[in-house]
């Protein structure tokens, strides 16, 4: 098996110092393999965005990252900003949640598609524009020639997101990070944008990290899934294993909360009882224990480590819960 496109190990992000230090990410591990779409799921505030910002070196002011994030054999954690600038936009493309705010309202589309191409690939203006036309064609934007001279407000939300995806794709990166790319779009155009990402992944062999809190998106699009809870990965595995044989009580609760187990239609994640703890007052032991139906006394003090499940040699499926999975199954069913 080839090395993963991105390999994240023990990634920690904290803000503040001394007494007021808060650990937003508490040692996160995940791999993104070549040409696959990895889903990162979890409630709002669980640290999905922060994890990818740490990888890109775009943390908010005052936040620090430790651990490693190896992209194409190079650890990005600890690189200087000027080194990171040769990687961002070149080897990692980023697609933000809302294309209305992520595209500059006063710059022409042509400019926003070409400025990083010219910088990273050393293309001349005409060359970059020719490539931009191909990209717009590739993301199925009608009339690319005309689009180049237009401004973002002259396009619909779905078209804007296609443009943003084209920009992320411009330098033919190893990895594209899409942070909830359909959340801000009309339901009617969401499926089209997701299909586009799937096709780009298949045709160009680009790896994609798909951040979402939408289980429908996960099951439709992603090859594998990592579920985040309060700054940790609490379950990961192939989408099918995690969806059909969820081991962690949190994942189970998420799935049980869906009114219809048929996940073909796009359904938002229904919040489960209680609220997600903020990074500042995270409970001791298992962070999920105040909301967990299966919590036992040790859960309140001992943080569970990851353990593997499933038959040996198959796709690894891990979860972090101290309760025995077989026992758990008998309780639920």
């Amino acid at each position: 098996m080839t090395t993963p496109a991105l390999s994240v190990r023990n990634l920690r992000v904290s803000v503040g110092s001394g007494e007021s230090e808060v650990e937003i990410l508490r040692g996160v591990d995940f791999d993104v393999r070549r040409g696959e779409i990895l889903g990162i799921a979890g409630e709002s505030g669980s640290g999905k965005t922060m994890a990818m910002r740490a990888v890109l070196g775009l943390l908010p002011h005052g936040a620090r990252a430790t651990g490693s994030a190896v992209l194409d054999g190079r650890d990005l954690v600890g690189l200087s900003q000027s080194e990171l600038r040769t990687i961002r936009g070149r080897h990692i493309g980023m697609v933000f949640q809302d294309p209305t705010t992520s595209l500059h309202p006063m710059l022409r589309i042509g400019r926003q598609l070409t400025d990083h191409m010219r910088k990273h690939l050393g293309l001349r203006r005409a060359e970059a524009e020719r490539r931009a036309l191909d990209l717009l064609d590739d993301v199925r934007l009608p009339d690319p020639e005309q689009a180049m001279g237009r401004y973002p407000h002259q396009f619909s939300g779905g078209m804007r997101q296609r443009i943003a995806i084209a920009a992320a794709l411009a330098c033919n990166p190893t990895l594209i990070v899409a942070d909830e790319p359909t959340t801000a779009l009309d339901v009617t155009v969401q499926a089209g944008v997701l299909a586009l990402l799937r096709r780009l992944c298949d045709e160009h062999g680009t790896s994609i990290v798909m951040i979402t809190h939408d289980l429908g998106v996960l099951s439709e699009l992603c090859d594998r899934v990592s579920v985040f809870y309060s700054g940790s990965v609490i379950e990961s595995g192939s989408t099918r294993d995690v969806m059909d044989h969820a081991r962690h009580p949190y994942t189970r609760a998420l799935l049980d909360a869906l009114p219809d187990q048929g996940l073909d239609d796009l359904r938002p994640m229904v919040p489960i009882a209680g609220t997600a703890p903020s990074a500042a007052d995270r409970p001791a032991g298992c962070a999920f224990h105040p909301r967990c139906r299966f919590a036992t006394v040790p859960c309140q003090t001992d943080p569970p480590g990851p353990r593997a499940t499933g038959p040996d040699g198959a796709e690894p499926h891990t979860f972090s819960c101290t309760v025995d999975p077989f026992e758990l199954r008998s309780v639920v069913r």
């Binding site: 990687i87 500059h104 990083h116």
Partner: peptide, 19 residues
């Protein structure tokens, strides 16, 4: 967001600030 996006594209700080 578009400023964060400009940085995510790896553009240099002078470009981000001026353009």
């Amino acid at each position: 967001d578009y400023v964060r996006n400009a940085r995510a594209k790896g553009l240099g700080e002078p470009t981000v600030i001026v353009r």
